[in-house]
Design a protein around this nucleic acid. Structure first.
Length: 700
DNA sequence: AAACTAAAGCTTTTT
DNA sequence: GCTTTAGTTT
């Protein structure tokens, strides 16, 4: 078994895996087999050190990463992973709090508010405090960063300088936390902050979990915020068997509270930390690594590392400047098409990365114009769709009737004649009695003195929810049907959207109501299964952790990459450089950097300069193309349209039938009249090169 | 309570 | 430029 786990690993990776006890910091460069180290270390601990799998706590940031880790561990162990504690920070905290939150004064049926829900709470507070409502965005991010720094409202008020925030803001924070408590709700940041609070205030509970998890592993450690690191330190305080894996060069979420300094602090916080560097890259060619290295070396506050590979030099990196963003998009689409027709790549091998979401539009148009299939990664997720959120809100309200945000969401969906004036009246009652909206409605129903029409409307909604509550123990998919039908929601939402609802009902098989609610809350757009058969479009941020044979990065211009908001401060400029570095290191075989001389921004057209980052790449590793030649970018040979070279009917796009392989589509044809070769993609066997003289091809 | 018009926005976003 | 939201009308 030992041989199996260590055999295909390099010496540094082996060292990391064999280091079982004491603090371990693995600095894992891009593409250096980081996940492999974590999963193999997990397996090594259980098989060689007799650590029970259920007593290793492994934490990551995304559900997707957690799922992948679980799947790979399962494969290594050959055992079911159902009981493992391999999860995101947030779902780990959720799991703890569902058991322990009573000691913090919440009920364990608390619900989780996403950004949308919590904005609603903030905005209604701003309205109440007569603060301009449009400020909610800034306020919500301030709240989030305070919580990420573990500063609760009481701390804010206690300090004289209030951490630089004014008194008005402190009052908003206090009210916000009060409202959440009244709704029996926690936001994302609360999940972490309250778990830390729980451990701080109840040493016995902490001790219990410290004993339960003698080993801790954390992935993407450079992305931890203050609160998450604090949580990790608490959990590891006893035995100090903590292994963190990360790459300071890939820290790109500072704006969300991530703090790279946690990597530097780790060695101080855990004396005698073993530091291991993984510098062998298994993903990219040397040219791509040289480009990446040249850029990232310009950052001054980083832990020195140099990636190398055995993969060979490969193609040079291409840089192409076009006149406009439309030409840039057209160039990318055409290049993808040319590469695809060569037959070595499928559409799923390509990705186009960009700094801003708004860049995707023109790219999409160009891909559509060329008939190329694509999908956008990280848009809105299944669980963020209106109809799905609505139905989840019904479930949330049924489980936790104090959840006033969910109540507001569905009280008039489908329409029940309950508009803003009616809600205001209910709210009035709720504030007066200091109870939740639903309780206020229940109260209105049984009290006298309200107009009968008003009371009827309220009664209708209350009894709908109460009746549904009575059936909540039935099978989940049946229960969902009951809600959709009895409320008239299905009829109201229309055919197109009801398809998504059907999908939800179907996917809810063997799930229980609480799990569905938590899954929906802790799910992200990036978790959705990747459609491997089409071109991926996404922001550079979304690309972290992924890899593609052919990568395009669009908009390598000053003002975009680096973004003009970031050029003022050196700190932010370095983060932009890391973002570019992350983009470059996604590429396995080929990397295309493109930019435009002129670009539309909102209403106006701006003159653009090439990005300063381009000059930082060693000149030997990239090729500059000012004007797009009509020939292929990849080979120097002149490539005329296939239809001119040979006069066969088998031109690109034609459907053909082969006696053995069935129906396929011609991707390319070349050669002289008597020796024409065609490249055909058969769905069953893939791309085949065929000589027309011999292959019995039939046009259909 | 829905439907309109005016105006203000506008980086990235693992949960 | 276009989408989101605030405030107005009907």
């Amino acid at each position: 078994m030992r041989k199996d786990l260590l055999s295909d690993l390099n010496p540094q990776q082996q060292k990391a895996i064999k280091h079982a006890d004491g603090p371990l910091l693995v600095l894992a460069g891009a593409g250096s087999g980081k996940t492999k180290v974590i999963t193999h270390r997990f397996a090594f601990l259980t098989t060689e050190q007799n650590v029970p799998p259920s007593s290793i706590l492994a934490m990551t940031f995304t559900n997707k990463a957690a799922e992948e880790m679980k799947a790979r561990i399962q494969k290594l162990l050959g055992k079911d992973t159902a009981g493992l504690w391999v999860s995101t920070f947030h779902s780990f905290c959720c799991r703890i709090l569902r058991k322990e939150i009573a000691s913090l004064g919440f009920q364990n049926n608390f619900c989780i508010y996403d950004k949308d829900d919590s904005s609603k709470v903030i905005r209604s507070i701003l309205k109440e405090f007569k603060i301009h409502e449009a400020l909610y965005k800034g306020i919500s991010s301030k709240l989030s960063s305070l919580k990420a720094s573990l500063i609760a409202p009481e701390h804010l008020i206690a300090r004289d300088d209030s951490y630089g925030f004014d008194e008005k803001f402190a009052r908003v924070y206090v009210k916000y936390q009060d409202d959440l408590r009244r709704n029996n709700a926690l936001d994302f940041d609360d999940l972490i902050m309250f778990t830390v609070k729980l451990f701080d205030e109840h040493p016995g509970v902490l001790k219990k979990y410290q004993t339960e998890f003698p080993h801790i592993m954390i992935d993407e450690f450079q992305d931890t915020n203050n609160a998450q690191y604090r949580l990790a330190k608490l959990m590891a305080a006893g035995r100090k068997n903590i292994c963190v894996v990360g790459d300071d060069d890939q820290s790109i979420y500072k704006f969300r509270g991530a703090d790279v300094r946690n990597i530097l602090a780790f060695e101080k916080d855990f004396p005698k930390t073993k530091v291991i560097r993984l510098e062998q890259n298994y993903r990219s060619t040397q040219n791509i690594l040289d480009a990446a290295g040249g850029v990232i070396e310009q950052n001054n506050s980083r832990m020195p590392k140099k990636l190398w590979t055995n993969n060979g030099n490969g193609e040079k990196v291409f840089h192409c400047t076009t006149n406009s963003e439309r030409e840039e998009a057209a160039y990318i689409a055409r290049t993808i098409n040319e590469l695809y027709l060569k037959g070595r790549h499928s559409y799923g091998d390509f990705t186009i990365l960009y700094r801003l979401n708004q860049q995707s539009m023109v790219l999409e148009e160009a891909l559509k114009a060329n008939g190329l299939p694509y999908h956008i990664v990280g848009g809105i997720s299944f669980y963020q769709r209106k109809e799905i959120k609505d139905i989840i809100s019904y479930l949330k309200l049924i489980i936790n009737p104090d959840d006033s945000v969910s109540l507001r969401r569905i009280i008039n969906s489908p329409p029940r004649g309950i508009g803003s004036t009616t809600i205001a009246k209910i709210e009035n009652e709720a504030v007066k009695k200091d109870i939740s909206l639903f309780k206020a409605m229940q109260h209105i129903v049984i009290s006298s003195g309200y107009p009968p029409a008003f009371k009827e409307k309220i009664k209708g909604f209350v009894s709908t929810i109460e009746e549904l509550s009575g059936s909540k123990d039935m099978e989940l998919s049946e229960f969902l049907w009951l809600i959709l039908e009895s409320t008239g929601y299905m009829k109201w939402i229309g055919e197109e959207r009801s398809e998504n609802l059907m999908e939800l009902v179907n996917s809810s098989d063997e799930m229980d109501i609480n799990r569905l609610i938590d899954t929906a809350a802790l799910f992200s757009p990036m978790d959705e299964s990747d459609k491997a058969s089409s071109i991926s479009l996404m922001t550079l941020h979304c690309a972290k952790g992924l890899e593609f044979p052919v990568v395009f990065i669009a908009g390598i211009e000053e003002g975009l990459m680096p973004h003009f908001h970031a050029v003022k401060s050196s700190e932010e400029l370095q983060e932009e450089r890391r973002l570019f570095y992350v983009g470059i290191t996604r590429a396995k075989e080929m990397l295309f950097l493109t930019g435009a001389k002129k670009r539309r921004f909102y209403a106006s057209v701006q003159e653009q300069q090439p990005s300063r980052f381009l000059k930082e790449m060693p000149s030997g590793c990239y090729h500059c193309i000012e004007k797009r030649p009509r020939t292929s970018m990849i080979t120097s040979e002149v490539k005329l349209p296939a239809s001119l070279l040979n006069k066969t009917p088998f031109v690109t796009g034609v459907r053909v039938r082969h006696p053995k392989w069935g129906v396929g589509v011609v991707r390319d044809s070349y050669g002289e009249t008597d020796d024409v070769k065609v490249m055909v993609n058969f769905p069953s066997v893939g791309v085949k090169r065929l000589s027309l003289k011999f292959a019995q091809l039939q046009k259909i």
